[in-house]
Design a protein around this nucleic acid. Structure first.
Lengths: 337, 337
DNA sequence: TTGTATTAGGCAATCGATTTCTTGAATACA
DNA sequence: TGTATTCAAGAAATCGATTGCCTAATACAA
């Protein structure tokens, strides 16, 4: 059986209350008693039972992190940043993943709440306009922060990257590198992909450029689909001399397609990805990409959550913060000419 | 305030005990009462308070996963496999990472134990012969399983990959592909790297081959060091026509070095990595590698832990299991000729 | 001397469940 | 009819802490 405060109290002929107070540095305790308690606690290798404490304080010092998939480097890095940020506050992170399944996401969220987590960070895969999950969480008055994927029509704190800026940055970089026929391999995802596409268009517009509609092609979200998308894009005339891609895997697929046609990257065609995934610099042609500040997303989200957990009274007054991380262009081989 | 069993009991004029029994499907309860309780619970959106339950049952249905770094795809995948495996048992996973810092690892383990986790899975970064951490855990009688890195002199369940087999498989594959001058870029890590090196030597010996000592070169553990290692290896005479590498990043660096000298992979030199990291097939030359069954490691470790948590009496009788996952060769471009 | 503060520490209730033991009523059996 | 058995439900103790209020002792001021 583990050592409890009772054991210490009994040994020292004091009450558990006294022990508890000493161990929390709280209340008025004489130096002598304090020393005795501390001493005995150390001797017995006493460790607090956090479950018991949590029951009465209603704080578990645990947050839930609900992601679609933490194998993906993007989410893995977020997880690390979150864990790192909350650690100094004495918090731990319970992970959970939904595999992009809205039902599973709800049941996992439920189960995290049952464990009395003090807060939640969610990259939700709920379909648009399905707010039940969030309403439930709100009803339980558990603070939460959304990340990566904003939910339309929801008043909730959010941390994500500025996807329009990503599209803009990538495209402007191509323009700066002298590309004049700039295509875009767009992604499948409605929200994010659409915004990156919009950024692409904005950049063009800002520079008074117009591209044929055949320059925007669906590139899916993986290297396979990126490859196929690029094949299609390469049939456009004039052949593009620059491509901005929905994400890195798509860009990698695109580069393959280009090389397979005996064209050169970046000599004939420049390629920009987005995401700055690990190993981006180990590829056939190291990929210029837009870094989406993954660490920052995790860290800011965690900070925001800590803040909201901190204030007991959920201040209805202030509107929930939305934080947009500014992406940053990372130039590598694939556009350097 | 959240709904408790009390609320249900009061509403129905029954005792909490009855409610508790119904909700756990335990004890003798009449169909009528059961229905009433269930009904009311649903109406009030009752959710169990797991903290309270844990206090008395001494089960938190939570395990701790202590890794050096879960940003690394290897560990990320293990984390996923673990979470997936324990989910059906009603378990959740608290993650913690040590950043390869033994001190931090100890304090994190401590803090996980204070949270009353039911078990621990650890990829430890304790230096050799420092068993204090594990002795501590054992003293608390919390089941644990080591993964990836075995700890010498410790009687503890372990799940990892057979590293000798990795070296052997890689090298035998090169032999099968007709390579006759086979080098090895070894890693820095004493335990694992040494075993892979040994596997390399075994394979050669099994086929009656002998290589000059200059064929074994330190390749570090990243692509940068792998690049440099390969440069050195390329100065050996005769120039190797096959290289087995400590891990994938090293192999990727090696391929770069080879290509930079205007040699062709696999035509002039075959390269085999180890680890089968994500994106291995997106590289300049898709990399033949030895898959180390990452998922399996996580899954088996989790199963083992569930098993040990299951039996109340820690059976001292059976010696702790050591499970070695058999690696598997994945052939891609870099050796296909 | 009396009254008021201050200090050190403990009592009892509480958090929200589970567990063990009882109890009273209904039913079965002799 | 009397006794044994079964059944549904509850009382009380418990898990290991925290919290608010109380008390006794000492110090200080009037």
């Amino acid at each position: 059986m583990a050592v409890t405060m009772q054991d210490i109290a009994r040994d020292l002929n004091v009450s558990v209350v006294t022990v508890s107070k000493v161990l929390r540095n709280q209340g008025r305790i004489s130096a002598v008693t304090r020393k005795r308690v501390l001493r005995r606690a150390k001797d017995l290798h006493y460790r607090m039972n956090w479950v018991a404490r949590s029951l009465v304080t209603r704080r578990t010092y645990t947050i839930g992190l609900l992601l679609p998939d933490f194998t993906h480097p993007f989410f893995a890095e977020i997880a690390r940043a979150v864990a790192q940020t909350v650690r100094p506050h004495g918090y731990h992170v319970i992970i959970s993943y939904s595999e992009e399944d809205p039902k599973l996401e709800i049941s996992e969220a439920d189960s995290l709440l049952a464990r009395q987590v003090d807060g939640l960070i969610i990259a939700s895969s709920q379909p648009v306009r399905r707010l039940t999950l969030f309403k439930q969480i709100q009803a339980r008055k558990v603070p939460y922060v959304l990340i990566d994927r904003p939910i339309a029509g929801l008043q909730a704190p959010f941390v994500g990257v500025d996807n329009r800026a990503i599209g803009r940055l990538a495209t402007e970089h191509l323009i700066a590198r002298g590309c004049v026929h700039i295509g875009h391999l767009r992604g499948p995802d409605i929200g994010i992909a659409a915004q990156r596409l919009q950024g692409y268009r904005e950049a063009l517009a800002n520079h008074g450029l117009r591209m044929p509609t055949s320059y925007v092609v669906d590139g899916g979200h993986g290297d396979q689909t990126g490859y196929e998308g690029m094949r299609r894009l390469l049939r456009a005339r004039p052949i593009p001399d620059g491509v901005s891609c929905y994400n890195d895997p798509v860009a990698i697929g695109a580069i393959k397609a280009i090389l397979d046609l005996n064209l050169k990257v970046p000599h004939d065609i420049c390629v920009v990805g987005a995401g700055n995934v690990q190993y981006s610099d180990l590829l056939a042609v190291p990929l210029t990409t837009v870094d989406q500040g993954t660490c920052q997303i995790g860290a800011r989200a965690a900070e925001l959550l800590m803040e909201r957990i901190g204030l007991k009274r959920p201040t209805r007054s202030t509107r929930p913060k939305k934080i947009l991380i500014l992406p940053k262009l990372i130039e590598r081989q694939s556009t350097r000419r």
